[in-house]
Amino acid sequence: MSHPLTEQLIEAQLNFLDHEFAQADQIENEFLQFHQWFRKQTLQDVWSFEQIHQLIQKQILDTPASDFLIEQIAEHIRFALIHPINDTATIEDIIPVATIDKLALYVASKSGHRKALIKRVVNNPSFSSMLTQLIHHSIQDYIDNSVMNKKVPGVGRFMKMGKSVLESVTDSNLDDTVKHYLQKNIIKISQLSEQVLNHQFDDEKLYHLQANLWHKIKKVPVSVIRSYIEVNDLPKTVTLGHEIWDHLRQTDYLKQQVHDGVYAWYVRNQEHSFDLLLRDLNIDETLIQNELCQLLNPIIQKLISSQHLRQRARVHLEKFYYSNETLKILGIEKGA
């Protein structure tokens, strides 16, 4: 049951709150005061490792992406690819040449990694098979279609006769003989290939190769990317990518990685204040004063103008003023 005095007090306080929060500088001051308190709190004083891990586990690993989110990802990629600015912007406009040069020097300097990769490639059975077929076809093509064979009368006949003689002596056809030779000597050929590749891709040559490639593509418009990405297939390709993630997020492997990664981060930072943690996210005092406060102020103003703040404040003020203790202070009998 309402009472005139308590209702007047409630209305007076609601009017006071409306007036106070209607002042932009007051909102900014309150927000900064909260920030000054919050920035001094340490991570372990506010959140435990279990709370952070459970939040990530529930919101990222346990929650599948919605169909709408997948559609939005595909749409944003499509929008970026078909944007008209891609026709005028060149690759050098969006990628600094200094970074390209550093990248070229970095890649060229990794000679040990490069040699190990070349060795692994040339010693792979697939590479050996490809190399054997390539050499075999080259020899066969030379015998059947060489320039001399076509332009000099009688040479083609001589080549065929030589082939027949060789086949009669070796008691096998030329194709089998060449294949046998290549298979027998493929290890030596692979070793030679490794030497040639290491020579062609030494530090200096690889650096200049990358530099020359940059000079060829730097003036190319960004729209050339559309030549390598089928825009109309984006819903399908993005969905395929999502299927990979949807499976990965449910695996014990990723769950363990996330658990241990979050734990390692928490142990390193649990005694750090939020001031330091926010700086790691590039959020400092200047950003809060100049940006976040400006973003917050319209929200508070909307809460006030829509009466939402007043309605919510009334709920709590009524609980306070109609509590037994407050009514006793005011000298009002409950139910009067």
Score class of each variant (00 low, 15 high):
211 A>Q: 10
279 R>M: 14
233 D>S: 15
134 L>C: 12
330 L>K: 00
276 L>D: 11
155 V>F: 07
306 S>M: 02
260 D>G: 01
186 I>P: 03
102 K>A: 10
241 G>L: 13
221 P>S: 07
265 W>D: 02
92 E>H: 04
58 K>Y: 12
27 I>W: 00
222 V>L: 15
28 E>A: 12
87 D>R: 07
322 Y>H: 13
198 N>F: 04
73 I>Q: 06
224 V>T: 10
237 T>P: 02
237 T>L: 13
154 G>D: 12
54 Q>T: 12
201 F>E: 01
261 G>C: 06
191 Q>T: 13
227 S>C: 06
161 M>I: 06
119 K>W: 05
146 S>V: 05
154 G>F: 09
324 N>V: 05
334 K>S: 11
277 L>H: 02
182 L>Q: 06
231 V>H: 04
292 L>E: 10
81 L>I: 05
112 G>A: 14
270 Q>A: 07
125 P>Q: 06
194 E>R: 07
120 R>T: 14
326 T>A: 08
83 H>E: 12
82 I>L: 04
26 Q>C: 04
81 L>M: 04
324 N>D: 10
79 F>I: 05
170 T>E: 15
244 I>L: 09
316 H>G: 01
227 S>E: 15
267 V>W: 03
26 Q>N: 15
53 H>C: 03
83 H>D: 14
109 S>A: 15
78 R>L: 02
256 Q>W: 01
300 I>S: 01
88 T>N: 09
276 L>Y: 11
282 N>I: 12
237 T>R: 11
180 H>V: 09
132 T>S: 12
96 P>R: 05
205 K>M: 06
123 N>F: 13
58 K>F: 09
158 F>T: 09
309 L>N: 01
105 L>N: 10
75 E>D: 13
200 Q>F: 11
58 K>H: 13
320 F>M: 03
126 S>H: 09
220 V>E: 13
200 Q>P: 01
291 E>D: 12
291 E>H: 12
62 D>C: 01
145 N>F: 11
162 G>M: 12
177 T>Y: 14
232 N>A: 14
228 Y>W: 13
48 S>P: 04
267 V>Q: 13
166 L>W: 07
164 S>Q: 12
4 P>T: 14
